[in-house]
Structures are given as structure tokens and as C-alpha cells.
């Protein structure tokens, strides 16, 4: 009994001594190579290299020190502070799902390109009535015999503002010389958002009543026909015969192409 208990005490003492020795032993930090006591290594890694705790070399180091660094310490070290590993994993899973959805949507677009919204190119442009800033109703068919560029805009759209400025400064003279009329038509109710009136909007960017540059506001049905996807900046090129010969988004960068299409160039 005595022998046995004495033997146990010796073993415990040895174990404690070995533990203390191990704790006092120093090693080089796997990241910065600073000399650090082994028992303080987890604290050192956590406070000085928080971004490296998951790195391959730290994980390798910790695996090799299973005897001196406890499992709990290793697990705590690999858990970023203020967040759980599962939390990060959930974000990563969500990120992967989102990426798959985006890639899927892009692939769908490539395989099944969406048909151009509104009136198709090559068909006759359906006539509609728009209201001029002075309140006079005007029909699109009134412009038959002249090529027309019909531009559906929202007056709160910065791209439309920039496009209006581009037209006033660089393209108005070319359109005027080619007898091509620009119909700049505000979408019905400005697509449900608040914006300035079409007249004050265009005036702010270079419109001062030039001939061949006509402003107006579209009805709900006209907006639905010519801009069913509610794009902010969509245009149609209508030939002198009333047929849509081209269409697209972003007239600001395409005034030259629209003019060529209108004049058959």
C-alpha cells in the first residue's frame, strides 16, 4: 500500500517536473522566428500573428507539438477571435452558392440571350403620343419622312445627363446637318422615382430649344411598349419610313453609331 502510494507520488512529481521543464523550454515562432516559451506560444501566435493561425506552417507546427500544447489551446488558436469557425464556414458556403448563382445566370444569358426589350428591330415603330414640355400632345407618326432617334430617359439618371451633355456639345451639329431628329422622351412618371422635369433637366445640360431636338414625356403605355425593362437609357433608331433599324442601351456612347444607322451609312 505504502509502496504503491509512494510509487504513485513519485510518478506525479516526475510528471509535474517534466511539464514544468517543457513549459520553460523555448522555441522559435514558426512565423516570425522570435524565441518564445512553448507554453506562451499560443498566446504569441494569437496576439501577434492572428492572420497566420490557420496557415499551413502554424498548423504543422501545432500538430508536431501535440505533447506540449493542449488540444483545447490548439482549437482556440484556430478559432478567429470574435467569430466562430462555423460562422466563417457559413459565410464561405453562402459565398460559393452566390458565386454559383451568378455563374449560372451568366451562363443562362449566354445560352439564351434575352430578346431586345420593346419593339423589335426590322419592325414598324408603333406610333404613340407624347406630351411636349408646353403640354402639346404629339404623335410619333408626325415625324414620318425624317429619320428619328427616339431616346427614352429618366431625368434622375446620371448617364442620361452625361449623354445629353455629349449630344449638346459634340453631336447636335452632325444630327442637324443630317436632318436627323432626336426625340428625348422622359419615361412615364420618371419610372416611379422623383426627378426634375424633362425641360429643366435638358436645359441644365445644353438644351436651349434647338430645332431637331425635341423633348417630351411618354404615357404609361408608351413606356411599357418602348421600355418594358425599365432601363434608364434606351434608344431606337427609326428610319424615314417608320421602321426600327437599330436599338440599344446607353445612347451617350453611341450617338455616332445611331447617326450612321439613321442615315443608312
Amino acid at each position: 500500500m505504502t509502496d504503491s502510494s509512494g510509487h504513485d507520488d513519485d510518478r506525479d512529481r516526475d510528471h509535474r517536473t517534466n511539464g514544468a521543464r517543457t513549459a520553460r523550454r523555448t522555441e522559435r515562432c514558426p512565423v516570425c522566428e522570435e524565441t518564445v516559451r512553448i507554453d506562451r506560444m499560443p498566446g504569441h501566435l494569437r496576439s501577434v500573428h492572428p492572420d497566420q493561425c490557420d496557415s499551413a506552417k502554424v498548423v504543422r507546427y501545432l500538430r508536431a507539438r501535440k505533447d506540449s500544447i493542449s488540444r483545447a489551446q490548439r482549437r482556440e488558436l484556430r478559432t478567429p477571435r470574435g467569430w466562430t469557425r462555423w460562422g466563417w464556414t457559413r459565410w464561405r458556403i453562402a459565398g460559393v452558392i452566390l458565386a454559383v448563382l451568378i455563374v449560372g445566370a451568366a451562363a443562362y444569358f449566354i445560352v439564351n440571350p434575352p430578346a431586345p426589350p420593346g419593339v423589335r428591330t426590322g419592325t414598324e415603330a408603333p406610333t404613340f403620343t407624347f406630351t411636349s414640355p408646353s403640354g402639346v400632345p404629339t404623335e410619333l407618326s408626325a415625324y414620318r419622312g425624317h429619320p428619328v432617334v427616339l431616346w427614352m430617359v429618366a431625368t434622375w439618371c446620371s448617364g442620361c445627363a452625361a449623354g445629353t451633355q455629349v449630344f449638346a456639345q459634340s453631336y447636335y451639329s452632325q444630327y442637324s446637318a443630317a436632318h436627323v431628329t432626336l426625340l428625348e422622351i422622359e419615361d412615364y412618371n420618371d419610372l416611379g422615382e422623383s426627378g426634375p422635369g424633362i425641360s429643366s433637366f435638358a436645359s441644365a445640360y445644353g438644351y436651349h430649344g434647338q430645332s431637331g431636338w425635341v423633348l417630351g414625356v411618354a404615357s404609361a403605355s408608351a413606356t411599357g411598349t418602348y421600355n418594358p425593362n425599365s432601363e434608364l437609357d434606351y434608344y431606337y433608331v427609326v428610319s424615314a419610313g417608320g421602321v426600327v433599324v437599330a436599338q440599344g442601351s446607353g445612347l451617350g456612347g453611341n450617338f455616332g453609331a445611331a447617326l450612321s444607322a439613321a442615315t443608312g451609312g
Binding site: 445566370a105 446620371s158 448617364g159 446607353g250
Partner: peptide
């Protein structure tokens, strides 16, 4: 600018 003034959002939503 990429999302506001390009047809990206309307075209995506139209799907």
C-alpha cells in the same frame, strides 16, 4: 456606375 447606368440590373431582373 456599373450597376446604375448600365442595363445590367434591368436585364438580370427581367429574367
Amino acid at each position: 456606375n456599373l450597376l446604375c447606368c448600365t442595363p445590367f440590373i434591368p436585364t438580370l431582373l427581367a429574367v
